[in-house]
Nucleic acid binder design. Structure first.
Lengths: 233, 233
DNA sequence: AAAATAAAGTGATATAAAGCACAAAAAGGT
DNA sequence: ACCTTTTTGTGCTTTATATCACTTTATTTT
């Protein structure tokens, strides 16, 4: 089982998937990360990080998609966001009590890097420019997530479904045609509605020619209308 | 009107209300803030910062309570949090597009300091330790607010009202007896329910002896029960 | 390829909470 | 102290969406 996690290692210096923050580090600073990190692969569906666990390493998502979620109770799941590549996972948890507040699981086969937390914190404290970049990233995420949540809490189901579709089209895949990375249940968990209701609205949208949907494949046909529905709530 | 804002100025060095972050600055660094900031008072009910406005100064809440909110539509209001003294307002907005994403208004007469944004950013980039402290604060807020929101979206009205009461008792006032800083409407806006429903639940709690409430005065009588209701949702 | 399991779709019903309309009380202004 | 405005409380009605129970369709497993 464990041998599935192929542990490869090239140097961080010539990594094509560096974060914006890491890009501004000096050679010797990058060396510190290089010597105190390792890369690993996680298969589709597997958990990368568990809500409630203690952080000893910071995890950088090098390639692939990851879902960020919490389970308020064993039978419920709230998906907070879909995390794209070139992102550190769970930064806010890192600077607080060091307990991970969210769980992360791989939506496809992904590559992640584990970086020693002390090395990372040290770079922040030593290099204000690096800290600033991390701050920008934490702030952006905080704002984005919050906006999605506020919208959600204000909108009714049609608006929420429209939002979710736009989220995939504009932010996650940046294309009008994409393949949902998960089931209808999970789609529903992303916007906080029941699976049945989500299904119904999705089919209504299809019926009205707003989207084309076949299994997990989805295409936005009437962007204008969808945006309008999203606005109206 | 404007003369109401008494502009006093003592030096930042002997300020009794310094932020945790500012406390670690050197004398010369504090000087920079000192020469590029001014203190001002805002009266109860007045707006400190408008959602959508551009940031030229960062605002530090020296004393008093402030409500952080957004207005998704002119007739709706979502209160995000009650901000306590010794907190920078709207930090996440500062590091993104520099547009304020939330509004802030004074819940009582408050003192705030306006600090030049460039000076502030400079300190972050020059002093990683300072940056780290800001990072901790942004992260804490992000996590806290998110938790409240996730809870909210998962709970039904009884749980939400219980949460709000506990929020005031434990976090805002740190006492079992307190005076709500605003109307029932605003109380409802904090937890995203209608005013009528909030009222009804509040009175139900009173009837059952869980809380004592008279106007805006509130006292938590059965903490255990309240926590249980909060957990059950 | 067949059987088993999981996911998706569908109609009927239940229900929590919003909305409405009004009365009572409190707060604010003159 | 009186009038006006705002806030709070209350019963009734409406409505959106969850939940239930079941069928159909996909996906895995053997």
């Amino acid at each position: 089982m464990f041998s599935d996690y192929t542990i490869t290692k090239q140097t961080c210096h010539d990594c094509k998937d560096k974060s914006c923050a890491a890009a501004i580090l000096s050679k010797s600073e990058l060396d510190q990360i290089n010597f105190n990190s390792r890369e690993s692969q996680v298969k589709k569906g597997e958990i990368i990080l568990h809500e409630g666990s203690l952080t000893s390493h910071i995890i950088y998502l090098k390639t692939g998609l990851v879902k960020e979620f919490v389970k308020p109770s064993p039978d419920r799941e709230q998906i907070l966001s879909i995390v794209k590549q070139h992102t550190y996972l769970g930064l806010p948890s890192l600077f607080g009590d060091r307990i991970n507040h969210y769980s992360y699981s791989a939506l496809d086969n992904v590559k992640v890097c584990y970086i020693d937390i002390n090395v990372f914190n040290n770079l922040i404290k030593k290099n204000g420019q690096f800290a600033y970049e991390i701050l920008v990233s934490v702030s952006r995420d905080s704002l984005n997530n919050f906006h999605r949540f506020i919208n959600q809490s204000q909108k009714r189901i049609y608006g929420r479904v429209a939002d979710a579709i736009l989220y995939f089209g504009r932010i996650v895949y940046e294309s009008n045609e994409f393949c949902l990375p998960f089931t209808r249940k999970e789609f529903a968990d992303l916007i906080g509605v029941s699976r049945e209701s989500a299904t119904r609205v999705l089919l209504k949208f299809k019926e009205e020619g707003i989207i084309e949907i076949k299994g997990r494949m989805m295409e936005i046909l009437k962007m204008e209308l969808l945006e309008q529905i999203s606005r109206k709530g």
